[in-house]
Amino acid sequence: MSQSNGNHDLFENLRLELRRGCLSLAVLSQLRTERYGYTLRKALAEQGIEIDEGTLYPLLRRLESQGLLTSVWREEEKRNKRFYRLSPEGKVILKQLVVEWQSINASLNGIL
């Protein structure tokens, strides 16, 4: 029982690790156009990438603090929303990451 739980926890940890980098890439790719958090989550969900708010917002903050995103508070539909978009530096990094991703994907497809 405990072995089974241990395996499950281990799988969860590895799955989260695997997703972490992918999520950054997915988020950056969706922010080529300006979006606020909620619409960004919906856009990702429509593409099959579910991300909860507790993961997305800290990630957005981290990407912004790294200079990859810019954000601005603006009122829309009578509510203040924080809109994010790729910074010029973010665009460059995204291009590099996409190339890297395609390379890894091709390699893994060969291995798996």
Binding site: G37, Y38, R41, E53, Y57, W73, N80, R82
Partner: peptide, 15 residues
């Protein structure tokens, strides 16, 4: 960061 985080999270949950 309190105010900023709460404002953003609040907006998402209300949406």
């Amino acid at each position: 960061q309190r105010q900023d985080i709460i404002a953003e999270l609040s907006e998402d949950l209300r949406s």
